[in-house]
């Protein structure tokens, strides 16, 4: 008999039960806390990402090899169709080539005359990284890349693949970063139609085709419209290709992503600096600001 009056097996059973209840309770508290606050135990997530990145680099290779067998089979089976389609596309686009070059020249000239800043919104610098793993589960759609703060990646940076916008960085660790894909449930990107300039928010819904939401009543969206980032909010640069409008229902058109169904191995991060929020009125004196700007203009050659 133990000190508390229980036999040893009974005391052991009680300990087991208490440990089980304690662990279930602590997990429930974590679950509820995480639901309220996304950054709960953030350091644990950073560490897990770094550890996972180290191991997944080795493990992903053979599994990707197996996956590529099936993919290559499908790709080869439709090679003839693809070839024909690409030839048609080249023939169709060739007549627009001169037109585009001419327009580019004219736009550059107009911008020069008007003294506009004609530098591209999309940063020229790119950080190349490898997508170590992609989680396309029922709950989340994220990816892990092998570049972090050590290479200049920061939270909020856009991540591109060869086909288009892949996602954006939600967590930048020391040597790895977590990317939130466009079809994740918590992904919200401000987009526009390249044809009509109509604005919308691309909302991830954990399916293969995110939908366009918050569309104004007079917006003009049509099937086949090319969807690009609008740059509204100053978080992402303007003009990054995303996909095209595929199915239009009464309320929310779907978007077929350019990256959908394509193997994503190498990606690049765009180190775009978001537009900083305006400072408080008390911090800046408008007169001083005007004087400083005038001095800068004089200092420039």
């Amino acid at each position: 008999m133990s000190d508390k009056g229980f036999s040893r097996p009974q005391a052991r059973r009680n300990t087991r039960r208490n440990v089980a209840i304690f662990l279930v309770l602590i997990t429930s508290v974590m679950f509820l806390a995480d639901r309220q606050q996304t950054s709960f135990l953030a350091s644990g997530r950073y560490s897990a990402d770094n550890v996972a990145m180290q191991f997944l680099g080795f493990l992903a290779s053979p599994i990707r090899g197996v996956g590529s067998i099936g993919r290559q089979y499908f790709e080869r089976s439709r090679a003839h169709q693809d070839n024909k389609r690409l030839k048609d596309e080249v023939a169709r686009l060739r007549k627009y080539e001169n037109q585009v070059l001419d327009l580019e020249m004219r736009v550059n000239r107009f911008e020069e005359i008007l003294g506009m800043d004609n530098s591209a919104d999309i940063p020229i610098e790119r950080i190349v990284a490898r997508a170590v793993s992609e989680t396309n589960g029922p709950f989340v759609h994220t990816a892990l890349i092998n570049a972090g703060i050590n290479k200049g990646v920061r939270s909020g940076h856009a991540v591109m693949s060869v086909d288009g916008l892949y996602g954006h960085v939600v967590r930048a660790g020391r040597t790895s970063s977590r990317i939130l894909l466009l079809n994740d449930l918590s992904s919200r990107i401000s987009v526009m139609s390249q044809r009509s300039q109509s604005r919308a928010i691309l909302v991830g819904n954990n399916s293969t085709r995110p939908k366009l939401d918050y569309i104004s009543a007079d917006a003009d969206w049509r099937i086949g419209d090319r969807v690009v980032t609008s740059g509204d909010g100053g978080v992402l640069p303007r003009g990054l290709p995303i996909g095209h409008v595929d199915i239009v229902d009464e309320k929310n058109p779907n978007v077929k992503l350019f990256t959908q169904g394509k193997p994503v191995d190498w990606v690049w991060v765009l180190p775009y600096k978001p537009t900083p929020p305006p400072q408080g009125e008390g911090e800046l004196d408008p007169e001083t600001l005007v004087e400083n700007e005038a001095e800068n203009e004089v200092a420039q050659p």
Binding site: T27, R45, F139, V140
Partner: peptide, 12 residues
């Protein structure tokens, strides 16, 4: 942590 899902889901 590693799957970036809701914390505690798989644990529970």
């Amino acid at each position: 942590f590693a799957s970036n899902g809701p914390l505690g889901l798989w644990t529970l």
